[in-house]
Amino acid sequence: MKKFLYSRKAAPYVFILPFVVTFAVFWLVPLIKSGIMSTQKILPGQETFIGIDNFTRLFSDRIFLIAVGNSFKYMIFTLILLIPIPMILACLVNSKLVRGRFKNIFKASLFIPALTSVVVAGTIFRLMFGEMDTALMNQFIGLFGMEPVKWLKGAATGFVALLTLACWRWWGVNMMYFLSGLQSIPEDYYEAASIDGATTWQKFIKITVPQLKPTFVYVLTISIYGGLAMFNESYMLYQGNNSPNNIGLTIVGYLYRQGIEKNDMGYASAVGVVLLVIVLAINITQLVATGTFKKEDDK
C-alpha cells in the first residue's frame, strides 16, 4: 500500500486530493443542495417538494424585483465608474513625464483604501454622509451653495454614497490591474511605431488599447461578479440589512434576509440559484462577445 502511494502513478492524485475533497465537500455538495432546496418548502425538520413554486413566487415578489433592480443599477454604475477612470489613472502613472517617487506615493495612496475592512470603510462613510450640515459631504456640497442633504434617506443620494464608497475602495485595485497590463506591453512596439512616425494618440489606439484587452476582460468579469453580488457595502452603510424603503437592498441582501433573518431556506436558495444563473449568463455572454473563448481554442 505504501509503495503504491509513493509510486509515480499515484502521486499526482495524492497531490490534488486536498483540492478534490474540499471541492466535493464545500462546493459540490452545497451547490447540489442549493438546487434541491430551491424546489422545497423547508420547515424545521420537514421538507416538502413543491416544484417551481419558489421561482414563480420569486418573480411576482415586488421586493425581490426591487433588489434585482438595485443590484443591476449598482453593477452598471460600477462598470461605468470603476473601469474607464482607473484605466486613465494607470496611463497617467505609466507615462514617463512624472518622476518615480511622486508616482509611488500616488500609487500607494490609491491602493490603501483596499486594505480597510468593509466594516471600517462603512463606518467612515456613514459618518461622512451624515445628515447635519457639519458632515463632510454636506460641507462639500455647501461649497457650491447647496443645501444639506439627508444622503442615506433618499434613493438617489443613497446610491451616490454607495458608489462613492465603491470608487474609494476599488479605484486603486483596478488601477493596479491596468498598470500591470500596461507594463507587460513590450517597449519595442512603441519604438517601432515612433520610427514609423506615429503620433501619441495613434500609438494609444493601435498599441495600448488592443494590448490591454486581456486585462480589460478580466476587470470586466470580476466587476460584473462583484457588482451583482454586492452586499457588505450596503449592509455597513445602512447599519444592517434594512434600508429605508429597501433603497439599499441587493440580491444577496434579500437572500440573507429570507434565509437567515426569516429562516425560509427554500425560498432563499431559489434567490441564490437566480443569482448564479444571472452572473454566469452575463459573464459567458461577455466572454464570448470579447472573444476570450476563441483564443483558448487556438492554443
Binding site: L89, V98, F106, L110, T123, I124, L127, G172
Partner: peptide, 16 residues
Amino acid sequence: LMAVIGLMILLPFWAI
C-alpha cells in the same frame, strides 16, 4: 491632477 486625486482618496483616513 494626481495630487488632487491622491489627497481626495486619503481624506477619509484623516477624517477618522
